[in-house]
């Protein structure tokens, strides 16, 4: 299983892997927002956490269509499914999700604090946003895996994944953003939404891979 994790990370960061593209997309989205809403620093610092979250959400959806499709195209997926007796397929999917998150989404979390500065956010707000992203983005990947699994047979499933997955990640977005705001706005407590966010991630870490494994099983033809 560790071998699968390292193989997928290697594929992600090696030439043409597209892990860099996600971060670039994130940067570009954040850089575009001020042109749309105007360069008012007060306004930007107010909407900063939400922008960071939406940017990270869109960027992490970006590479999801390749999660299983690359393996399907070269026949690896058949062998991953056949190995079910040795490695439970849901666990294989879970490991693939973790590798995808480490190679493609973790860089977004690392980039987020710098982009927070562009948004004129306060240090506490930046820290809270980065922390909620660290805890919340795995949930996006786990739900995204379900979307990637059900669209694996489609040659251009990328857009469809976003359409399918975006409604499902709204709870994650709500609690992530509200926890980030709570860290800055005084009366709101930070911990409750943050803990709910963590619970969501843990819950989806189980549900997502199981559902995705089921979908992959039926997608084989």
């Amino acid at each position: 299983m560790l071998a699968l994790f390292f193989r997928d990370i290697r594929l992600g960061i090696r030439a043409g892997g597209g892990a860099l593209t996600g971060v670039l997309f994130f940067l570009a989205v954040i850089a575009t927002i001020p042109f749309g809403v105007g360069p008012d620093l007060n306004l930007l610092s107010r909407i900063g956490p939400a922008i960071l979250w939406i940017g990270a959400l869109l960027a992490s959806l970006l590479g999801l269509d390749r999660l299983f499709q690359a393996d399907r195209e070269d026949g690896s997926l058949d062998l991953l499914i056949l190995a079910e007796g040795r490695h439970m397929l849901a666990f294989t999917v879970f490991v693939k999700c973790l590798a995808h998150w480490t190679a493609s989404v973790l860089p977004l979390v690392v980039a987020a604090p710098f982009l927070g500065l562009f948004m004129n956010m306060k240090p506490a707000g930046i820290g809270a946003a980065a922390l909620t992203l660290l805890v919340g983005t795995p949930a996006i990947t786990f739900i995204g895996a379900v979307g990637a699994a059900v669209t694996v047979v489609l040659p251009r499933g990328g857009l469809l994944i976003s359409v399918l997955v975006l409604p499902l990640v709204i709870p994650v977005l709500i609690f992530g953003v509200s926890a980030s705001y709570a860290a800055v706005a005084e009366p709101d407590p930070f911990l409750p939404p943050f803990l709910i966010l963590a619970a969501l991630t843990l819950f989806l870490a189980v549900i997502g891979p199981v559902a995705a494994a089921l979908a992959l099983r039926y997608a084989a033809d």
Partner: peptide, 20 residues
Amino acid sequence: TWWVWDARLTSVFVLFLMYL
């Protein structure tokens, strides 16, 4: 402030994005 969205800074940031 660390950052303002004025023309010089923004255009250099765009340059950075283009490099990447």
